[in-house]
Design a protein around this nucleic acid. Structure first.
Length: 437
DNA sequence: TCTGGGGTCCTAGGACCC
DNA sequence: TCTGGGGTCCTAGGACCC
């Protein structure tokens, strides 16, 4: 038996922990640049704000409906997430952290009193972190996800869904007819793995509800769609195809990309941005004890500016030998950038991706025919990176870095706008919550 | 004026091999 | 006129997730 535990409206809920005045109000959290809504409170959803909807389209609701918008504060959300995750981990032998706000639990059997366990978990997480959660139990991951969805819907729409399923929903304790009824109430688009392209195709084939999909022939749909769809149908029918993975592998690619606050046209500005991105991904690569064998750089104009000439060039540069050295990665990124940059375009976005990753403990890669073998001991390159990482850890990000990277971020033309960011209450001493006596 | 960022997996199709 | 067949590997692009 699996459970899916999920924080309700994670980013908004994190903000509400420290600003209780936001409770009961329509609140959205905005993406980088304050560009689009990436989290919505239930009240904001009820106002019709859609996921990823541009802020300028809903901005009028500030005045007309009291909508409150906040800039994303990912440092706060990440810290709240790890507090919540470590607390939830105590409830089952295995936990798979699936995203910043949700995890699967594998009980390794069928625990009794599941509904009570679910409510106890919710109570503890709420008391110790302030975050509201929903819990869904099911015999497969896909069913646990669906049960979690039902738990949320029953909380929000007690008129449609049975209110006793609110907050904690256990598919394992339902009669088959009761489960079918819940599936009949639920749109097929709510199923994990059915996205915006597949849902209309399913509907056209007469599969509009979860129940329709469950009753479909898995193999036939698998041939029509993909092997993923085959598994999804089997999982809905109760056949386990996916396991809980509590030891996720290191990522296979590491990316840093951003839209700019304003369009950028000049190469020196792009060099500064791309150098900064390359420094970020290099650090994250070292954190997972990895090295990269290639680097990918892209810049792009804005497809939303119809009057601008469009261009979105990319370049992938193989690295002469696998590395996690910031200096080598920055200079490779800049070389790639120079090769794709064309003047006369208004660039809106840039990104750096490290690909072809491997562990730095793996066999040393093959050397170039003309390469000098690198001395094994002492490895000055690695020592330097460790020292820089330690300095930045101690004195704050970007205390030490390569000179071409951006160090004037808040004032640059391309710096992101974050006009509405809350304090990083839990990770910065100078931003800690203060209480008045 | 203003439109997210970071991932994974699958598939189709081309290059290449014998 | 007529131009193999089967396999692997790689890459780009698409769909999905949150």
């Amino acid at each position: 038996m699996f459970a899916l535990v999920d924080v309700n409206n994670m980013y908004v809920s994190c903000e509400r922990v420290f600003q209780p005045a936001l409770n009961g109000r329509p609140v959205v959290v905005l993406s980088n640049n304050d560009g689009a809504c990436i989290a919505r409170s239930n009240e904001a959803k009820d106002l019709g704000v859609k996921m990823a909807q541009p802020w300028f389209e809903v901005r009028h609701l500030e005045r007309s409906a009291g909508l409150i918008a906040l800039s994303a504060n990912f440092e706060l959300y990440g810290d709240m997430s790890s507090r919540m995750m470590s607390l939830v981990a105590g409830f089952a032998p295995r936990q798979e952290i699936y995203s910043i706000d949700e995890c699967f639990l594998d009980f390794g059997g069928v625990p009794a009193h599941r509904v009570e366990v679910g409510h106890e978990l919710r109570r503890q997480v709420l008391k110790w972190t302030g975050l509201p959660t929903s819990v869904g139990f099911g015999p497969t991951k896909t069913l646990a996800k669906l049960a979690n969805h039902v738990a949320k819907m029953a909380d929000r729409k007690p008129g449609t869904y049975p209110p006793q399923q609110a907050q904690v929903c256990d598919f394992g304790s339902l009669l088959p007819a009761e489960l079918d009824e819940l599936m009949r109430l639920t749109d097929v688009a709510a199923v994990w793995g059915v996205g915006r392209k597949t849902a209309p195709r399913l509907q056209a084939a007469g599969i509009g509800t979860v129940l329709d999909l469950k009753r479909a022939d898995a193999a036939t749909l698998g041939r029509q769609f993909s092997v993923l769809m085959h598994k999804t149908v089997l999982e809905l029918q109760g056949t386990r195809c996916l396991e809980v993975d509590d030891a996720p592998a290191a990522s296979q690619q590491i990316m840093c990309s951003r839209s700019f606050g304003q369009p950028v046209t000049e190469l020196p500005d792009l060099i500064e941005v791309v150098s900064g991105f390359a420094s970020r991904v290099a650090l994250r690569l070292r954190e997972q004890q990895g090295v990269a064998r290639a680097i990918h750089v892209f810049i792009a104009t804005s497809p939303h500016r119809k009057d601008d000439r469009q261009l979105s060039p990319t370049a992938t540069l193989p690295l002469p030998r696998p590395t996690a050295d910031t200096r080598l990665l920055v200079s490779a990124a800049v070389r790639a950038l120079r090769s794709i940059y064309r003047p006369g375009y208004r660039y809106a976005k840039a990104g750096v991706m490290l690909v072809d990753l491997q562990s730095d403990t793996q066999d040393p890669a093959q050397l170039d025919l003309f390469d000098e073998p690198e001395p094994v001991q002492p490895d000055g390159r690695r020592d330097l990176m460790q020292t820089i990482d330690a300095l930045n850890e101690r004195f704050g990000r970007d205390s030490v870095g390569v000179a071409s990277a951006s160090h004037r971020a808040p004032r640059s033309a391309h710096a992101s706008r974050q006009a509405r960011r809350s304090p990083r209450y839990t990770t910065r001493f100078d931003e800690i919550l203060s209480a008045k006596a």
